[in-house]
C-alpha cells in the first residue's frame, strides 16, 4: 500500500446486447437491469476520470465468423457514453497495473433454464454461485482461477474478463451488488467495488 489516497473503482456489468441502443424496443425488457447498469456506470465515472480500463472477453467463434464488432467493448462504450464519460477508453489492463477506474463486461452462464439461449445445464447454478461469491468477497484468486473450459461450455461470456479483474488484485474495501438475476436464462450481475490506495 502506497497510502496515496487514490480511490479505485471497478464495476461489473453484463454484455447483453439488449442494453445497446441499436437493439432498443419500445418497452425495455429488463428495466431493473438497465437502471442498475446506468447507476453503477454513472457512479464509476462520477469524478470524471481521464481514462477507463475496460475488461471484456474475446468474441466467440460465431461472432468472429460473422464479422460483427466485439460485443463487450460496444456495451462498455455505450454505457460509458450514456453516463457522460468523454475520456479515453483503454482496452484491458496488465496484471498488477495500477488502475483507478475499471469497467468489466461479463456474464455468467447462458444455460440456466429450458428457455435459456443455451437450454438448461444444471452445472450453471453452482458455477454462477461460485462467481457471485468471488465477486461479493472480491476474491481475486477465486476469479483468476475460474474454470475457463466449464465457463465456455456454459456459454458464460464473462470468464476471461473476470480473470483479468482478478489479476489486478485490487484491495477492495467495499462491495455493492446492485443486480443479480437471470430474467432470460443468462446470469447477469451489476457489482460495484471500491477501495482507497
Amino acid at each position: 500500500m502506497s497510502g496515496s489516497g487514490t480511490v479505485v473503482k471497478a464495476v461489473v456489468v453484463p454484455s447483453a446486447p439488449l442494453l445497446l441502443a441499436e437493439y432498443a424496443a419500445a418497452g425495455d425488457p429488463a428495466p431493473a437491469l438497465t437502471a442498475a447498469c446506468t447507476g453503477a456506470v454513472e457512479w464509476l465515472v462520477q469524478r470524471r476520470p481521464p481514462l477507463v480500463h475496460v475488461l471484456t472477453s474475446p468474441p466467440t467463434g460465431e461472432e468472429r465468423a460473422n464479422g460483427a464488432p466485439d460485443l463487450g467493448p460496444r456495451v462498455a462504450e455505450h454505457l460509458l457514453r450514456r453516463a457522460g464519460f468523454a475520456g479515453e477508453v483503454v482496452a484491458g489492463a496488465r496484471p498488477g497495473e495500477q488502475v483507478e477506474t475499471v469497467l468489466v463486461v461479463a456474464d455468467g452462464s447462458a444455460r440456466r433454464g429450458e428457455k435459456a439461449p443455451g437450454h438448461l445445464d444444471e452445472r450453471s447454478f453452482a458455477f454462477d454461485a461460485a462467481v457471485e461469491e468471488a465477486l461479493m468477497l472480491a476474491d481475486s484468486a477465486a476469479l483468476e482461477s475460474l474454470d475457463v473450459r466449464l465457463g465456455a461450455e456454459l456459454l458464460a461470456r464473462g470468464v476471461p474478463a473476470l480473470q483479468a479483474l482478478g489479476a489486478l488484485d485490487l484491495p477492495v474495501e467495499q462491495v455493492d451488488l446492485d443486480y443479480a438475476g437471470d430474467p432470460f436464462g443468462v446470469q447477469y450481475w451489476v457489482v460495484r467495488w471500491q477501495c482507497v490506495l
Binding site: P17, L18, A24, A116, P117, F184
Partner: peptide, 12 residues
C-alpha cells in the same frame, strides 16, 4: 419507422 414492442430474442 417503429421499434419492436419487445426485443429479447438473441439479445439476452
Amino acid at each position: 419507422r417503429r421499434p419492436p414492442a419487445r426485443a429479447v430474442r438473441g439479445l439476452a
